[in-house]
């Protein structure tokens, strides 16, 4: 009986796995096939080699990664202190924080970008005689558009908030802080040495979600007239179909690779024991031989 149910569960598992796999893998396989099997040429990797030489690939990818890094720093820099403060000092602010961080979910990015471009157009007109004019120019610098970082930060707030909040739920921040303080740690050191190390997984999740969002973001970048990676892909797709699909496949792989890196970093708590033991082992040996 038990074996029967077991087998049935396994059968179901296989079926679900297969359907899910087909759903994801078939389009992927078709994409790959489309890029390597060019009509009239047979099997060729030319679209992939073409990527590296295509104009704008490296610059747009680098720009996007830089934007992502800046966004991650800004989002975590804003959210972590706010969430910790809400937990430690003002628990009543928590619902407010949650609502504020969820607002971007209800504002479509098109509306967001309409607002941004409105301000960007209005600002210079009215501020042309003030030093703020330079700020508006700098914010829109095409080599590093700060305005995109600001937009992405707002857009990734809901994702990062949820990831961090889940992590904070799993630890008793107040007790950890107080335990650290009674061990002689100043409040700042207590945060960095007792609280944040226990939020590593949550920080990694928040960073990854932000990164994924920035990598795939098209609307804001395109409408404000910048050329991050996603915009570049769409742009090149019009002229060279094979190339653009090849780029999509590559960016998918790139995202996966980054995901794995982040997941590994987030999980490295399980790796600490090995490291700690490796470090402790040489010290232990002489002690043992001495006793």
């Amino acid at each position: 009986m038990a074996r029967l149910t077991n087998r049935r569960i396994r059968w179901w598992r296989g079926a679900v796995g297969l359907i899910a796999g087909l759903y994801f893998l078939v389009p992927l396989a078709c994409s790959v096939l489309f890029t390597v099997d060019v009509p009239g040429q047979g099997f060729t990797l030319s679209s992939y080699t073409g990527i590296l030489s295509a104009s704008g690939f490296t610059s747009s990818l680098l720009l996007t990664l830089e934007l992502a890094a800046a966004t991650i720093v800004l989002v975590l820099g804003l959210l972590v202190p706010a969430l910790l403060a809400a937990r430690l000092g003002a628990p009543r602010l928590r619902p407010l924080l949650e609502v504020v961080c969820s607002l971007p979910l209800v504002v479509p990015s098109v509306a967001l970008v309409a607002g941004y471009s409105g301000v960007l157009r209005w600002g210079p007109q009215y501020l042309s005689r003030t030093p703020l004019f330079q700020t508006f120019v700098a914010v829109q610098n095409a080599s590093f558009p700060v305005v995109l970082v600001l937009a992405y930060t707002v857009m990734s707030l809901p994702l990062a908030y949820r990831a961090l909040d889940a992590g904070l739920r799993a630890v008793d921040v107040r007790t950890l802080m107080e335990a650290a303080r009674s061990c002689g740690a100043s409040p700042v050191r207590a945060v960095f040495q007792a609280v944040l190390p226990n939020l590593r997984g949550a920080l990694m999740n928040a960073s990854f979600l932000t990164l994924a969002l920035v990598l795939g973001e098209y609307t804001v970048g395109a409408l404000l007239g910048f050329r991050p990676f996603a915009v570049w892909i769409v742009g090149i797709g019009g002229s060279q179909a094979q190339l653009s699909v090849a780029v999509s496949v590559l960016s998918l792989l790139l995202t996966w690779a980054l995901l794995l890196v982040f997941a590994a970093a987030g999980r490295s708590r399980t790796r600490i024991p090995r490291r700690a033991r490796a470090k402790a082992a040489p010290a232990l040996v002489p002690q043992e031989s001495a006793s």
Partner: peptide, 17 residues
Amino acid sequence: HRRDAGMVFQSYSLFPH
């Protein structure tokens, strides 16, 4: 953190990491 007091808490308070 400058008071010379060691404290044991009601809840488990060891640093998990």
